[in-house]
Amino acid sequence: MIKTWELDPGFKHEIMKEPGGEHLTSCYQCSTCTIGCPITEIVPSYNPRKIIQMSLLGMREEVLSNPDLWICLICQTCTARCPQDVGISDLLSAIRRIAEKDEEAGKLKIESPRPLFDTAFLHTVEKYGRLYDIGLAMEYYPKREGSFVAGQKAMMKDYMAFGMRMFFKGKMGPLGGHGLLKGVLPSKIKKTDVMKKIFKWAEEKEK
């Protein structure tokens, strides 16, 4: 049952103010997005149409705490097929960013490691100007597992065989195609000062 007294009529405007969320009210609930979604095929509960409907109704808490938000592939299949140009892929991203802001403000606990991963990824870009896989893993795994030791263990499990494979193919490590320690040391750009400015600006914009 929907608790009508708990609905937040402002939620749809909150979403529509976010870049990517602008076209929320164009949705006429045809379900085309959901029928073609590859995640729905694997996880039957996954339903972008329903997330949109709940957002329109103002079910703020239910939408933002839905763990399904974090298993979208950003593959844009829904966006390409929607007859109403809702831009669902970007819209879901806008909703995720609202959830992240709520978590930062201590109002919500996100039940997915995805924001931790994205943040760790972007930290390496901010610092070096390019993705640094090892730096990413060193931040992500301990945070996801809740401790340094557990993080190292999980990282080894995921990376041991993979890392060796890349090493023997000359894609990472001392045998790397260009550079002695390719992939082991970060590839750092010269203008990291510009990266700092870019991230600072984008963060301000999100507020």
Binding site: P19, V194, K205, E206
Partner: peptide, 14 residues
């Protein structure tokens, strides 16, 4: 001196 495009991990379009 190219920099990372943000990949799929940069969710903020800005």
């Amino acid at each position: 001196d190219w920099n990372c495009c943000g990949a799929a991990e940069a969710e903020n379009p800005m």
